[in-house]
Design a protein around this nucleic acid. Structure first.
Lengths: 345, 345
DNA sequence: CTTGATTCCGAAAGCGCTTTCGGAAATGCT
DNA sequence: AGCATTTCCGAAAGCGCTTTCGGAATCAAG
């Protein structure tokens, strides 16, 4: 491979000044259509592409955005990441920008990590996910006036861009659904509520319980970690209580998988003796025992959406104009059913 | 935020020349220990960090590597990706390098995509995964003398770096295991064999079948797509044949999930009437019906490993010195068992 | 034709760093 | 003390692009 084609060589080849060629390639209006055409054709003919580092240095634009991976809570690795990255990459590549992924770090180091990312100039924007209710990263990014978008929301979400699913409403729907099936003692397997989504889902559950005139005291609520084991433990406690619930709502599908295990291990069958509903709509839920009823979120194009929005903000758009709330829908598989009664048996 | 600290300002502040400060920060030996210390301390005191684009332009080093995401075959999104990226990111971040992710593109565009990546200078190395038996990307990378590492192998794998799991051996072990359980008609649900791993697993199955003096004619082999649906169809055909197998080996866990479904839908129970063994060791397999027996690959640190190896190659190491073959182990859950006999019932 | 406005391109100054090179100052040796 | 080294730093030339600015050439208008 001969040495890489440079602007210098290209312009010499064309008998034009470097600046002229550069402007021609970048469609400056002060270049005649004729020479512009000549330049552009010759450029592709010779396979010239600008050195990104040189351009980035000259323009001060990083031409890249970072995705901060959520901390993986279980070895049941985040199934979203892959899909989300695909969408994000798709969005960015249309502009020739890079997608860079940074791993999450211990929570206390996050601010420092964000600071570095912002000041280093390696990226022109970032997308963060799974914000806490009071997310330090968001504040940092805001005060630095750095373009960013959030996958999810924090408590106050009016003044930044986000893309989220209304899981509060979804959990309300789930409760209504269970009530319609005759359930009145409905348990909830939650996650640490510093996660906004965990809080929202708990709220949706609670509010709809009282709206239906049902109890949702603490004995019906188990907060545990976001893993199958966590779900199993949480559901286990619920099931072993004096007056166990006849249905259990889980914050995530992964937790629900654990809940199903807890039910099985107690000699009961989910969907019959006790109902279980998860949230996420993971396809893998088709294969659990029994197949998991779940709230599916429309994440097909969330990555693409996130990318497009972030790009718009980087282009100068007002972050407040980019807030999108989608809704989730109940997908009935086989882990829910009417409340169990011995007699009906 | 006041304007970013630059080498120029830092050096003025120190009363030194830019070059001197730069060399001090980069630990050049021609700077006295005294001034080096002074410079470095002042740099951190003032929060100076070099502008990456400027450095990259000056040094010609991209300080980044790209991970090319495998094409996702099913909406059962690749569970590995997340974990792998984490490890990779970890490895790279120790050196302050960036990890950038590029989405896969239609196979026919891959060479072009690789070419762009290589010539653009945006990265100093790439990691590719799921190579085909005769992978065009590998050849391209080799002829361009561009640093890269492969997650998996192609047919001829002697002259480049790779990290792989010996799934051929693993499938041999699985066959032996089933034979020990009394099985003799063992079916195989495969994947398109342009995937090297699909071929290797098929080979492992075949060879060990004949080594055990068992038949492995085409009627026992179904090639289908890498998804749960594919696995369900493949296993279905096997099951519906005149002389159905008493055990089925699947190329991946995801396919095995489908196989379990096929068995259930025919009123049989896996692990009893017919055995199923998958490959990957996905944790989610604990929750299927029944829990899936599988060959688990040690992917805990594969990302980290891949990153370290690639870095070493970029540093000038000989790719041939970086070939690592790990092995998978059988994890018995509940989808395998002795061959079923009516009488024993 | 002359003038004034346009159109189009060349020249040059950066962007913020690295690295080579040469020379002054400090040190070693006789 | 005198010379040859060695130590340490300053100066300057890039890296490959973008972008401003001014001027030559072209055009329209008087």
């Amino acid at each position: 491979m001969t040495t890489r084609m440079s602007l210098k060589k290209l312009s010499a080849h064309l008998g034009l000044a470097q600046g002229t060629v550069s402007r021609a390639l970048n469609n400056y209006p002060d270049i005649s259509a004729k020479t512009r055409k000549r330049v552009q054709e010759e450029a592709i003919r010779l396979g010239y592409t600008a050195n990104p580092m040189a351009r980035r240095l000259a323009t001060g634009l990083a031409e890249a955005v970072a995705f901060i991976m959520p901390e993986s809570h279980s070895s049941l690795a985040e199934p979203f990441v892959s899909q989300l990255l695909e969408g994000l990459g798709d969005s960015l590549s249309r502009r020739g920008w890079d997608l860079l992924v940074t791993q999450s770090v211990p929570a206390e180091d996050e601010p420092e990590m964000i600071r570095k990312l912002v000041t280093s100039g390696r990226v022109s924007g970032v997308v963060i996910s799974r914000p806490h209710k009071n997310d330090a990263r968001i504040k940092l990014l805001q005060s630095a006036k750095f373009p960013f978008i959030v996958h999810g929301r924090s408590l106050r979400s009016d003044d930044y861009a986000w893309y989220d699913v209304d899981s509060e409403k979804a959990f309300g729907d789930a409760v209504d659904h269970l009530v319609a099936l005759g359930h009145s003692r409905i348990g909830f397997v939650g996650a640490p509520t510093y996660h906004t989504f965990a809080q929202a889902r708990l709220d949706g559950y609670r509010k709809t319980m009282v709206a239906n005139g049902l109890p949702s005291d603490d004995s019906l609520i188990q907060i545990c970690e976001l893993s199958d084991d966590g779900g199993e433990r949480g559901a286990g406690h619920l099931l072993d209580a004096d007056d166990p619930p006849t249905a259990i709502l889980c914050t995530t599908d992964v937790q629900a998988f654990g809940a199903l295990a807890a039910i099985r291990s107690r000699g009961m069958v989910a969907g019959k003796h006790v109902s279980v509903i998860g949230y996420d709509g993971l396809r893998i839920g088709r294969h659990t025992n029994p197949p998991l009823t779940t709230l599916v979120q429309p994440q097909a194009h969330s990555g693409r959406q996130l990318g497009d929005m972030l790009l718009a903000i980087i282009d100068g758009g007002d972050p407040r104009d980019f807030q999108e709330l989608r809704s989730a829908e109940l997908l009935r598989r086989q882990s829910d059913g009417p409340v169990w009664t011995e007699s009906a048996q």
